[in-house]
Design a protein around this nucleic acid. Structure first.
Lengths: 223, 223
DNA sequence: GATAGTTTCATACAACTGTTTGAAATGCAA
DNA sequence: TTGCATTTCAAACAGTTGTATGAAACTATC
């Protein structure tokens, strides 16, 4: 079908433009000009501008969620049904940080698009994010299994803070680089993941965590 | 001067409308209708819509920054020029959280406006935020004085994570309430501040912190 | 009370927005 | 080839937006 070609061209052009210039100043006319298709094609194939944005975001969002759940399941199977709290946090923040930070974030439009979606906040995306709670509940459940003694509220705060550090790092990447005058290496994604996981675990258990065996933090902590 | 009256009416109406409905769908015509002034008054008194938004944000932002620095100075004086790291974090996140969370956040339009400014991200506000780095440097300097042995990068990451937790809590307040089914009490501002400070300190020093003497966390930790 | 400066007002402007329309082109099955 | 459905296209639509204009109303000074 030739229709899929047009659909795809629109999706590609839209993702690239939104990634580059943000949602605020990209019009349908910009998109169709980049995609070399007719103006009416957007409404024909997607119904409306908002539905186009929603489809872009849902696609990328589902992919990340899948990765997260895969990592979580792998960790739980390795631990015989109960994953370590550090592995749970790692599954939660790893995929997002790997996707939006690091060298790929310059090249991949998908990554840059997700960063935009994280910084700006347009109605169609906000609506989708509000339904994302179910996904987080699975992580809350895993945390409950991992730390059965903990108060529920503590677990939710731990989950919340882990996401806070991950998302804020993505959002404020530039500012942190400027503030620290380059002393914080935003390209060392795995190091950042180690940091976020370590802080999250320490916040919850009060114990210092070793991080992954190969992690830079682990090496540093061990002197 | 009657001009100040008009100016003030515009500022009030704009702040309220932006707080209630967000920046996305509030037009100048909405503002002047609420303020009972003429459409041209906005451009006459402020130059443009963006400058109106900027003035609103700068006013509130400066107020918060003043509070933060006051708390920081008080803490440093009390410690003879060197504040405890917990007091530094408290000065950093306390004013923001107190301003945007808690009972006042329902009533005060100023608080609701700042929450909006934190969630949505319009160009005039983004421009101002980018210049806010100088203010954070003062906190970085205080941290250096408080923990002279620490690596610079660790301090910046600590600062960054503290802000992350504070801002994310403000931004995702609703979602956390829904996710935790009310188990996380978002109205207990001082308890939240204790939590953020405790996690921030632990992340940096690896030691559990007691929080304020009167803090709920402190009481809980002590059994 | 005339004058100069400030502030208000109704109105128009010019541009841009997402969406719709109905006809033309295309693809595909019989 | 005929017929039907899908897809493209140019054009227009209807509405909104922030801003500019020039006259009118006001205020305070001399």
């Amino acid at each position: 079908m030739a229709s899929d070609q047009t659909r795809g061209a629109i999706l590609n052009a839209a993702e690239r433009l939104y990634a580059d210039r943000g949602f605020g100043d990209v019009t349908l006319r910009d998109i169709v000009a980049t995609a070399n298709v007719n103006l009416a094609a957007v409404n024909y194939h997607f119904g409306s501008k908002d539905e186009l944005i929603a489809e872009l975001f849902v696609t990328r969002s589902l992919a990340t969620n899948r990765e997260r759940l895969n990592e979580l399941k792998a960790a739980e199977q390795a631990g015989g049904g109960r994953a370590g709290i550090d592995a749970i946090f790692r599954a939660l923040v790893g995929p997002t940080l790997r996707g939006c930070l690091g060298p790929s974030s310059e090249s991949s439009t998908a990554a840059r698009f997700m960063i935009r979606a994280s910084i700006e906040s347009v109605p169609p995306i906000r609506r989708i994010k509000n339904r994302e709670v179910d996904h987080l509940r699975k992580f809350a459940a895993a945390m409950r299994r991992s730390l059965p003694g903990r108060a529920e509220a503590d677990l939710y705060w731990g989950l919340h803070f882990a996401l806070a550090m991950a998302h804020h790092t993505i959002r404020e990447r530039e500012r942190l680089t400027k503030l620290s005058e380059g002393k914080c290496d935003l390209d060392d994604v795995e190091g950042i993941i180690d940091r976020v996981v370590a802080v999250s675990v320490t916040a919850l258990t009060g114990e210092k965590v070793q991080g992954r065996p190969s992690g830079k933090l682990a090496a540093r902590e061990a002197h």
